[in-house]
Amino acid sequence: MTTEANVAASRSCLAAALALAAGPAAAASLTLQITLPEIKTASYYRPYLAAWVEKADEKAVVGTVAVWYDTRLKDGLGKGWLRNLRTWWRTGGEQLALPVDGVTGATRPVGTHALQFAGGKGPLAQLPPGRYQMVVEAVREQGERELVRVPFEWGRAANTARVQGSKELGLVAVDVAD
Score class of each variant (00 low, 15 high):
residue 65 V to M: 11
residue 66 A to S: 11
residue 66 A to D: 09
residue 66 A to P: 00
residue 69 Y to H: 10
residue 70 D to E: 13
residue 71 T to D: 08
residue 73 L to M: 13
residue 75 D to L: 13
residue 76 G to T: 03
residue 76 G to N: 14
residue 77 L to V: 12
residue 78 G to L: 08
residue 79 K to I: 14
residue 80 G to F: 10
residue 82 L to Q: 06
residue 83 R to V: 14
residue 84 N to H: 15
residue 85 L to G: 00
residue 86 R to V: 11
residue 86 R to L: 10
residue 88 W to E: 03
residue 88 W to H: 09
residue 93 G to Y: 10
residue 93 G to A: 10
residue 94 E to F: 15
residue 98 L to M: 12
residue 98 L to Q: 05
residue 99 P to Q: 02
residue 99 P to A: 02
residue 100 V to S: 04
residue 100 V to W: 14
residue 102 G to Y: 01
residue 103 V to P: 00
residue 103 V to I: 15
residue 104 T to F: 08
residue 104 T to I: 02
residue 104 T to V: 11
residue 105 G to W: 01
residue 106 A to Y: 14
residue 110 V to G: 02
residue 113 H to Y: 05
residue 113 H to Q: 05
residue 114 A to Y: 08
residue 114 A to S: 14
residue 116 Q to S: 13
residue 117 F to Q: 00
residue 119 G to K: 00
residue 121 K to D: 13
residue 123 P to H: 08
residue 124 L to F: 09
residue 125 A to D: 04
residue 125 A to H: 09
residue 126 Q to D: 12
residue 127 L to F: 07
residue 128 P to C: 07
residue 129 P to Y: 10
residue 129 P to G: 07
residue 133 Q to H: 14
residue 135 V to P: 01
residue 135 V to N: 01
residue 136 V to H: 03
residue 137 E to M: 06
residue 137 E to A: 05
residue 138 A to N: 05
residue 139 V to W: 15
residue 139 V to S: 07
residue 141 E to T: 10
residue 141 E to Y: 14
residue 141 E to I: 10
residue 142 Q to F: 15
residue 142 Q to V: 11
residue 145 R to H: 13
residue 146 E to P: 01
residue 147 L to I: 15
residue 148 V to H: 05
residue 150 V to I: 15
residue 150 V to D: 00
residue 155 G to V: 07
residue 156 R to E: 11
residue 157 A to N: 05
residue 158 A to W: 07
residue 159 N to L: 03
residue 159 N to T: 06
residue 160 T to R: 14
residue 161 A to K: 02
residue 161 A to E: 09
residue 161 A to Y: 05
residue 162 R to Q: 15
residue 162 R to M: 14
residue 163 V to A: 03
residue 165 G to F: 10
residue 165 G to S: 04
residue 166 S to L: 12
residue 166 S to V: 13
residue 167 K to L: 14
residue 168 E to F: 05
residue 169 L to R: 02
residue 169 L to T: 08
residue 170 G to K: 07
residue 170 G to E: 07
residue 170 G to D: 09
residue 171 L to K: 12
residue 172 V to S: 06
residue 172 V to G: 04
residue 175 D to A: 13
residue 175 D to T: 15
residue 175 D to N: 11
